[in-house]
């Protein structure tokens, strides 16, 4: 994770959250990011709680949808970008990455997906 975070231009922090236990399984911060702790707490609500009920409702109603539970969430704020990706093998684990808003979003998504794959492979 440290390697991936350092390799990624604009990546400020990357962590792996257990959303049931609300704890970091791993966390690496290139710079102190004030929102990291909030993100840890939010990850559970974003993937398991009822905060995103309207969005889940949209997914549920989409043709061919299997149900709610989005796998990936990209949030772009004025000065930060958050990427959250749920592990395909363990839906209770979420990879969280924080970038500067100047980061290339496409690269950020691809690299965090790759980091998640590497993490889940190392856990297997």
């Amino acid at each position: 994770m440290r390697h991936t975070a350092r390799e990624l231009s604009g990546c400020l922090a990357m962590g792996y959250v257990d959303v049931v236990e609300q704890r970091w399984v791993a966390l690496h911060e290139e710079e102190s990011v004030p929102s990291t702790e909030h993100l840890r707490q939010a990850a559970g609500d974003l993937f398991r709680g009822n905060r995103v009920a309207p969005i889940n409702g949209v997914f549920e109603q989409a043709p061919g949808a299997q149900g709610p539970a989005p796998r990936e969430l990209l949030m772009v704020f004025d000065s930060l970008v958050h990427v959250l990706q749920r592990s395909p093998d363990d839906p209770d684990r979420v990879l969280v990455a924080v970038f500067r808003s100047s980061a290339n979003l496409g690269v950020a998504l691809i690299k965090t997906r790759a980091a998640l794959e590497a993490l889940t492979a190392s856990e297997a």
Binding site: P70, L73, F77
Partner: peptide, 17 residues
């Protein structure tokens, strides 16, 4: 925005995989 430290949201994208 509150969990992002009161950052102003420009957009968010959910993906079902």
């Amino acid at each position: 925005e509150s969990h992002a430290g009161r950052e102003s949201l420009r957009f968010a994208v959910w993906h079902d995989g």
